[in-house]
Amino acid sequence: MRMLKNWVFLLLLTLTLNINNAAVAQTPAAAEETVMIEANSKAADIEMADQLRRDGKIYVVVGCVLVVLAGVLFYLVSIDRKVGRLEKEYRS
């Protein structure tokens, strides 16, 4: 019981840390936002990968990443199922 209380105190300790920081940070954040909005409005001529999009080649990139992701996830799922099977085997 005493230990539990100790942990609660520790939690409070760290929480106060965060709350204080949140309080500290209010003003600069707001200032930042206005700067960003200004930057956005006059940023139409900044170079982006528009050509890549117009060519449709971006879909190649997306497809490629998706294939990699699918492969990795498939591998993870298969390990997951293998461990599951082993667990079942162990229990019986």
Binding site: N40, E47, V62, L66, L69
Partner: peptide, 22 residues
């Protein structure tokens, strides 16, 4: 969610910012 992240992450519009670009 991962698939959504990849697809939308590459295809949706983002703010046009200097230096950062794409």
């Amino acid at each position: 969610l991962l698939v959504y992240t990849v697809v939308a992450g590459f295809l949706n519009d983002v703010p046009r910012l200097a230096i950062l670009n794409e």
